[in-house]
Simulated assay, not measured.
Amino acid sequence: MSSPTSMVDWDLAGRTARKLVGPGPETTREDAAAVVRELHEAAARAVAHVEGLTGLKPAEGGPIPEVAVVDRPGWIDANTAGMAALLTPLVDALADKQGSRPGPVASAIGSKATGVQAGGILAFLGSRVLGQYEVFGSGGRLLLVAPNIVDAERKLGVDPSDFRLWVCLHEVTHQLQFTAFPWLKAHLETQIAEFVEATDLTPEVLRERLGDLMRSLGDAVRGTDGESEGLLALVRDPKQREILDRVTAVMSLVEGHAEYVMDGVGPDVVPSVKTLRKRFAQRRKGRGPFDRVLRRLLGLEQKMKQYADGRTFVGGVVDLVGMQGFNRVWEGPANLPMIDELTNPQKWVDRVFGRPAITA
């Protein structure tokens, strides 16, 4: 997985994450098997509800989506491979562009250090992520992390069957977004490539910005309120910021769309949906100092803002032009929302409906 010249030792990252992550809540073998069965069934049931509410269908002739119920190490393995597939070519391209690739000894030492760091992040996320549609890397699978789902439903004190279906509604929506519109993945990959091309960081500037980030993390340890973009705060070049705004808008759209769907199915499908939303919103805040530090480092506070802004955008557009009108957002990159339209749905409607529909 990791080449001798890789700037991240992904093999070490995976081993580190597996060592650090806990096994999850205690359960009997029989109960664990029942959870796996119910999650597969919930994912299958969710498909019809998501398609019915959104009016979307997977692209004809596309691959049949795969659902994988995994444990924490399984999620780590999938994401280590996915991150390596996505980031290694980009980091290598950046190093070549800057002419700053270290020698073999320095590269080996540096890649192990970053591998350990990446492993710590993967372990943290691997104990919390409930589900995920794999966009990059091998791609195409819907992952449901059984121990994290069980852990969350127990801590929230909610109905397990309702919660499992609710989670599946969110992840199946992501699956449908990318299988119905294959151009969406290609668009994101293009934006990431343009981001690398625009990079002009020097080691001195990078060290200065890392110092600013560390001060932000110190505030998080002390419990100081505030938002931080985490590692993304290292990027200040106007061209890169412009690209990040476009990527943020896309991710806000797909997250907000999934949030809209998981609540929009209503109590006929998920009887305790209002209770789930209320208690789950509290879970996302993260209370302990370790949680606060890592959330700030990873920019998860901004992630929560993405959920909120995206949900506002989707709900606002549907209120204005209906679901069929909202679905014009999927016609092509030109119809994706701009960052300032997320909180002003009328502005998007005026722009998109002021010209003819995009045809394939």
Rank of each mutant, 00 (worst) to 15 (best):
M1A: 15
S3W: 01
S6G: 10
S6T: 02
V8Y: 00
D9Q: 08
W10P: 05
W10V: 00
G14H: 09
T16M: 12
L20A: 12
G24D: 01
G24C: 09
P25F: 12
E26N: 10
E30V: 14
E41K: 12
E51P: 08
L53M: 02
A59Y: 02
P63T: 01
E66A: 04
A68Q: 12
V70Y: 12
D71Y: 02
G74V: 08
T80I: 11
M83Y: 10
L87N: 08
L87I: 04
P89E: 03
L90F: 07
D92Q: 03
Q98R: 15
R101S: 09
P104K: 01
V105L: 09
V105F: 08
G115Y: 07
G115W: 09
V116Y: 14
Q117I: 15
G131W: 06
Y133I: 04
V145M: 02
P147K: 13
N148Q: 05
N148G: 06
N148E: 09
D151F: 06
L156D: 04
V167H: 05
E171C: 05
H174C: 00
Q175V: 09
Q175M: 08
L176K: 04
F178E: 09
F178N: 00
F181L: 01
P182F: 02
W183T: 06
W183A: 02
E189S: 05
E189G: 07
T190W: 04
T190D: 10
A193R: 03
A193C: 03
A198W: 05
R209A: 00
R215C: 13
D219A: 15
T224L: 15
G226R: 08
E229I: 06
G230I: 09
A233F: 09
R236C: 00
R241C: 09
E242P: 02
I243S: 05
L244C: 00
D245W: 03
R246L: 02
T248S: 08
G256C: 03
E259K: 07
Y260M: 05
S272H: 06
S272N: 02
K274M: 07
F280G: 07
R284H: 10
R284V: 11
K285A: 12
K285E: 13
G286Q: 03
R287P: 12
R295I: 03
R296N: 13
L297E: 02
G299P: 03
L300K: 08
D309P: 11
D309V: 11
F313R: 07
D319W: 03
I339S: 02
E341T: 07
N344S: 13
W348T: 08
P356I: 04
P356Q: 09
